[in-house]
Simulated assay, not measured.
Amino acid sequence: MTVAQARLAGKVAYITGAGSGIGRAAAQRFALEGARVVIAEFNEALGLSCADAIQATGGQAFYVNTDVTNEDSVRTSIMAATAHWGRLDVLYNNAGGSTSVDAQVTDCPVDEFWRAIRLDLFGTWVTCKYGIAALMRNGGGSVINSSSVFSLVGTRGKDAYTAAKGGISAITRSMAVEYAPHRIRVNALAPAVTMTERVKSLLQTQPDLLNKTCERQLLGLTEPEEVATMAVWLASDESKTVTGQVIAIDGGMSAS
């Protein structure tokens, strides 16, 4: 693929949680498509590894240590990103995740609720606070949030996670309305169970969970690269009239 053919040529993309899983797959794909990528990651070893891997294949990547649960860290990270590349065109709020501590609301520890809210919902909100301001200075751009299919369908045992992801779906729609006059599109991806290394390890130890998950995801489990493919489309000018959408990547779970 030449730069002239690349769908994201000339764009600067800021991706949180880009050191592993879906975020790493997206960072690598964005770089392949010609973007200059900011690896905004809390784990320094993972973040540097991702940046090094992209650079080793001829891509452009810059790592900045980022804790999305901390406002000062996010503000400093966005400033570092724009200082390094001179602009920001794409904001991909990928950082987040659930834990095995989550449960139905009557059993879920309060600390787990606030962990999910701080990481998933507040992390998205505060990154938008400073990231959208950077997009506005550049004349527009694309925001991609990470929701979940569990914000679209009922599920058991994840009431902290679903609360956070439901909030992300809601603010995605409101921000799409608010920032359309600034030529900023805001959409969210809503994957089902995605085969990251962490999920693979979990499913290997819980075969019953794997079987139940496969039953719900009619077309099979989602791969990180499949989510990254949709993120590229939302980041590109190909989706220039798409905003306020929560797009399920779920193998048919939300339709069944």
Rank of each mutant, 00 (worst) to 15 (best):
F62V: 11
P207I: 09
T69I: 11
A81M: 06
W114F: 14
K11L: 12
A9S: 14
W114T: 14
A53F: 07
R29E: 05
A190L: 06
G244I: 09
T213Q: 05
M230Y: 11
P207R: 11
N65P: 05
V246K: 06
T69V: 13
G86K: 14
A27G: 03
R24H: 02
V64Q: 05
V3A: 13
G141L: 04
G157L: 00
I184L: 01
L210M: 02
M136K: 15
T213F: 01
V37T: 10
G157D: 00
T2F: 14
Q245Y: 10
G141F: 04
I184C: 04
G17R: 04
L210W: 00
E41M: 11
T106G: 01
D120K: 03
L32Q: 15
L119Y: 06
E44K: 15
A51W: 06
Y130H: 15
Y179D: 04
E215P: 02
T194P: 00
T229S: 15
D237E: 10
R137W: 01
E226K: 09
V68L: 01
L32W: 12
L234A: 07
F42W: 07
F150D: 02
L48D: 03
V232S: 08
A255L: 15
M136L: 11
G86Q: 09
K158H: 05
M175K: 08
S148F: 01
A31N: 08
A170L: 04
D107F: 09
E223C: 03
E225P: 06
S148P: 05
K200A: 11
T222C: 07
L210D: 02
E44G: 07
E178I: 09
F30V: 07
F122A: 05
T57K: 15
G10I: 12
V143N: 03
